[in-house]
Nucleic acid binder design. Structure first.
Lengths: 331, 331
DNA sequence: CTGAAAGCGCTAACAG
DNA sequence: CTGTTAGCGCTTTCAG
């Protein structure tokens, strides 16, 4: 592997000149440039990014830490985010180091430590669920951080969220406007911000329509297919006429229940799910859902990060993206 | 950020000793070790990986290059692979740099160039579709490479593939055994290895059952939902009684057609799709599919890569993983 | 059992 | 308009 020194010798200039030609950091005579380019080509030179990083304390790399669970469909959501991030990053000459906390706080800490010594230029993190991790103490302060999708309690800093409350509220509103009064709400474990916000939206919508809140219509449990199936069954038996399911895995389970028991949608039971996947289009009937702008979240996160990297230090930026209600045939 | 020098001073030893304590690379008296550990703790020292990489020419980072297309469901497949890779990598103290070629040969070349100057320790690549890229010329030879999912024509080197031919053959066999003789085959554009292999499996199965191959039952097109819908329609009108759809996006389109037109599955039309997604369980009827072991492919790729990194230079290793036929209600 | 010191490849003062 | 040179933080030979 040719080094900058080799190029300098071949081009009969100094390494400084070569460096400046590469980086355009000072004026170099055209003729000299030519020589340098020729030498670089001859030697098939390409700069050693590691050395560059060491010297310039900049790696052109940003980290992404996501909480993926094996076999969880919600992974698709984070992967869309990753995709959005990678895309914007590439356009800006940055690389993406991907890491997974497995939705586990200890692993997350470990991964942050890894990033701390890795000299990343920034970090996008979708934090694990859970109350209190003193994130402020975990970062070494040498790179900006943007939180995404979930905001840890009490964390103040750049955050890209999606409007869970509003998204849910609108969806439930549609159900209410169709005349439903007994609306079941199926959610993954409560106590995590996204779930709680969605529940809030549900309550708010009900309140606005002066429908009494019935606690027994709220069904909570681990976000699994089976649980979704089971909770849909319970609600069905309790006589609800509409279902709002606050995550995609449980949506699938719920649909499965309705199908298996020949419950006619939307006549006997209306349903609105969360997250938009292609298969929802071919469900029968096609499923109405609250669609989260995953790709856009990734983009927004990187854009914010790049601003910070480029020296913006103003306040903190909290972006709240709107989700979109996609009405199909299931309600 | 404390450096090794700071630690050395604080512990009143040389930097060499600190380094050896950290890496366990030579004997150090227990007493000295204590001092070093204490100093490290005091200073909250953590080694600078960039400097370490520069010096030791090893980054503990491997690259992954996948061909994702925006909005393509098959992304899930590659993301599962990425997940498997990340997991094994983490267990071994490696990091993952993720990159996307967007199924575009030029972008792929660019990304390889980026990796070349990044000092990665290895690369896993799911190459873009297409005939001839002289991959051998693109890699700088300083890191081992493992190809995954697709083998470029004429490439010799470590490869992790899935047995497309066998997977398809078995699936078609099931259809044949149920008495179907007119079996439609819907595929993405032919000419790419995975599609071609699946078609081969189809033909082989037919041949073994002495069913004449009917070219008009083979429908090819870009792997989109719409095209899947359309081709299913064409085949239906040509009177086939069973459908084998060789990729998941088109499977979705085909199912959509059958549903929209009230074609009873499996009575009026049996169908087997490709790739296993959760939604297939709740299709009505649940879809039978050929399941590819994505996560396992990722694992296998990294394991092979790590072998190479650790000095194994023997021959080339071609792993062919079996896909699994998942029979549900659609055939 | 430990230290001194060279040097990985690059950037960026400083000096002309 | 260009060159000299001091490091970035670490590993590793060589020398004791």
């Amino acid at each position: 592997m040719a080094s900058i020194k080799d190029v300098a010798i071949k081009a009969e200039v100094s390494t400084a000149t070569v460096s400046h030609v590469i980086n355009g950091t000072r004026y170099v005579a055209d003729k000299t440039k030519e020589k340098v380019y020729a030498a670089m080509k001859d030697l098939d030179y390409s700069p050693n990014m590691v050395a560059r990083s060491l010297r310039s304390r900049k790696s052109n790399t940003i980290g992404l830490l996501v909480p993926l669970l094996a076999e969880d469909t919600s992974n698709f959501f984070f992967m869309s985010i990753a995709n959005g991030i990678e895309q914007v990053l590439k356009e800006n000459g940055y690389n993406l180091v991907l890491s997974n906390s497995n939705e586990n706080a200890d692993m997350e800490k470990d991964q942050i430590k890894v990033f701390n010594r890795q000299h990343i230029d920034g970090l996008v993190i979708a934090p694990v669920n859970g109350k209190e991790h003193r994130y402020e103490d975990q970062f070494n302060g040498e790179y900006p951080v943007v939180f995404i999708d979930r905001r840890p309690q009490g964390y103040k800093g750049d955050t890209i969220l999606v409007n869970n409350r509003q998204g849910t509220k609108e969806a439930v509103e549609v159900l209410l406007n169709k005349g439903h009064e007994k609306i079941g709400f199926i959610t993954g474990t409560l106590g995590i911000t996204t779930s709680d916000e969605r529940l809030e939206g549900y309550k708010e919508s009900l309140a606005q329509h002066h429908i009494a809140f019935n606690k027994s219509y709220i069904k909570e449990g681990p976000a699994t297919f089976q649980k979704g199936y089971q909770l849909a069954e319970e609600l069905h038996k309790e006589g609800v006429t509409a279902l709002f399911v606050a995550n995609n895995v449980m949506t699938m389970g719920s649909v499965s229940y309705l199908q298996a028991n020949d419950v006619k949608v939307p006549d006997q039971m209306a349903i609105i799910g969360y997250d938009d996947y292609d298969w929802m289009k071919i469900a029968s009937p096609p499923l109405s859902v609250v669609r989260q702008p995953a790709f856009e979240m990734g983009k927004a996160a990187v854009e914010q990060l790049l601003k910070r990297i480029h020296g913006d230090t103003e306040g903190t930026n909290e972006v709240m993206l709107n989700s979109e209600l996609v009405i199909r045939g299931s309600c």
